[in-house]
Design a protein around this nucleic acid. Structure first.
Lengths: 149, 149
DNA sequence: CTTACGGTTACCATATTGGCAAGGTCAAGC
DNA sequence: GCTTGACCTTGCCAATATGGTAACCGTAAG
């Protein structure tokens, strides 16, 4: 009567410590939508299924999802998270590889931050020179028009 | 023999001071691809065409494209550029409207910058605590795993 | 006339996330 | 046992802005 080997029913899977996708989402902070998406693009291995094709997740699956969420919070794109997951699973990894990824990411962030700070400064400079009242004169639009000042 | 009123041939349009799309791209720094795209989404009015359906651009068309490029360089999204273009064309605009857009954009940028700086700091902290040699121990992966330190 | 270049439209792709629709499943209450 | 509501499934569409490709036709120069 027990069919625990391949595709259990949901209640049975739960007894074995599995959770369904919405519980996994709540437990990891990754939306159900994204959990399915990560599986579809191969970032995570195909989830185990019940007889009714419901996805169920073990504690180690949840662990991996939390890993992904934290990496996303650090701004890593999916491709790099793929590499990080490989390194995470690889006992013979060299920490140098991981450090290099982290520093490369930090460097990219620094460059983007510098660009955005330049934009922000330019906008605030322009806004400061703009009266901001009912008059139509506007140094901001003048600057966008390419007028010399 | 002259058919300059509606749809001239390319040579004729050129004599009237029009340029074709690749010249417009070079003159404004907006790629031909993007010029067509901006037209398709209604950011710019439909370009004038020659008999053979080639787009041709007047100096004021180029002026508008340069305006768009500068606004993009300041990080304005297309939707806001639409508003900026309207204000630019509107003689009765109030500079307050433009200033508000610029400051709102500056504010968004500041928020994104703060987030990214937090990521960057976190990454550099982690990298600094990582030996970065051949050993597998790696505080970066430990942190992503959620281990307490 | 041929050739090379460049224009045209219409797709596809990126990366990430949200939303919706149609249909099947689970659990609880009657 | 049946109904009901919540939840699962897949698949498709949406957004951001930009790049690429393919098939077809126009233009300019030899």
């Amino acid at each position: 009567m027990l069919k625990s080997n391949q595709a259990p029913e949901l209640a049975e899977a739960r007894q074995q410590g599995y959770v369904n996708i919405s519980e996994a989402a709540q437990a990891t902070g990754v939306s159900a939508k994204m959990i399915r998406h990560y599986e579809a693009i191969g970032l995570t291995p195909p989830a185990r299924r019940t007889l009714a094709d419901y996805r169920v997740y073990s504690e180690s699956d949840l662990h991996r999802l939390r890993f992904i969420r934290r990496a996303r919070n650090l701004g890593f794109p999916i491709k790099q998270i793929q590499v990080l997951l490989d390194l995470w699973n690889n006992q013979e990894r060299a920490s140098a590889d991981v450090k290099q990824l982290a520093l490369a990411r930090a460097h990219e962030l620094a460059e983007r931050i510098a660009e955005m700070q330049a934009m922000q400064r330019a906008l605030e400079d322009l806004a400061q020179r703009c009266y901001g009242d009912g008059r139509p004169d506007c140094p901001i639009l003048d600057d966008l028009s390419g007028e010399q000042h």
